[in-house]
């Protein structure tokens, strides 16, 4: 499997506090990877290093064999998109215009752009909101809107693109959480999107993701497929909570 993003010896400190220590990771193309860990473990910080919002103290990140910082901004934007945890937008854009902001790095005609925006509004089940004003939307609606925006952004990638998501389902109801996660799984499986997402729900991560990376106090505590890496001892060790394990027939185990 081809490594798309590789991190080696990554260390990050903020305000004198060590946030990430000696992170080595290979993220392979077409895999949906969950970043897991308790609050403050460094999940979002790791994602922010990948999105170049934080500059690591030492260590390197390369994207398709080239240092991430050597990529031109527009070219990188077509290949790698970032969905932050919160998106502030105080001005009253229409929903579809927010999604259309994803067209910024692309070279599409007006018609092609409109069609692309419509496509993702439909896929994310928010077509009915297209003319609503952004500040009047609910948190979950805004979240899906921004997901649509970053998916629009990746429409002209030269190779299967990378999607970095920080808790993409945190404001969604249960049904929408499953819809969004299925969509992401489908994008990884059928179009070889490389997806890295911070998630909180371990069971959803085990159910939808190909790979798990568990962080604890800024270090990688475990990584691998859900079956090989997740177990009660790990959860107890990392989250300090002893779960109960349930088995459904031939499925990944569930932890409560």
């Amino acid at each position: 499997m081809e490594s798309v993003l590789s991190l080696s010896g990554l260390n990050l400190s903020r305000g004198g506090k060590q946030i990430l220590s000696d992170i080595d990771l290979e993220l392979t193309q077409g895999k949906f990877t969950a970043l897991l860990g308790p609050n403050g473990a460094g999940k979002s910080s790791l994602l922010k290093c990948l999105s170049q919002d934080h500059k690591p103290d030492i260590g390197s990140i390369s994207f398709r064999g080239k240092p991430l910082s050597d990529w031109s901004q527009v070219k990188l934007a077509r290949e790698l998109a970032v969905l932050p945890q919160h998106s502030g937008l105080g001005f009253a854009f229409k929903a579809k215009d927010v999604v259309a902001m994803g067209l910024y790095p692309l070279t599409l005609s007006q018609q092609q752009g409109d069609a692309l925006v419509t496509h993702w509004l439909e896929r994310l089940d928010i077509m009915h909101l297209r003319d609503s004003l952004y500040p009047e939307l609910s948190g979950g609606e805004k979240q899906r809107l921004h997901l649509a925006r970053v998916l629009v952004q990746l429409a002209q990638s030269e190779q299967p693109p990378v999607l970095l998501l920080d808790e993409p389902t945190s404001a969604l109801d249960l049904a929408q959480q499953h819809r969004v996660l299925s969509l992401l799984k489908e994008l990884a499986r059928e179009q070889e999107y490389t997806i890295v997402s911070v998630l909180h729900d371990l069971n959803q991560a085990c159910q939808y993701c190909d790979e798990l990376v568990v962080l604890s106090q800024g270090r990688v505590a475990a990584s691998g497929t859900p079956r090989t890496c997740m177990n009660e001892d790990l959860i107890d060790h990392v989250w300090r909570y002893r779960p109960e394990r349930l088995y459904r027939s031939s499925e990944t185990p569930l932890y409560f």
């Binding site: 999105s51 934007a77 937008l89 001005f91 927010v98 910024y104």
Partner: peptide, 20 residues
Amino acid sequence: AKALNALLLGEAEARHLGVD
């Protein structure tokens, strides 16, 4: 104008969209 629109999302978001 388009870059200014993107900037309304936030500086980091605009950068991720390819705005200098």
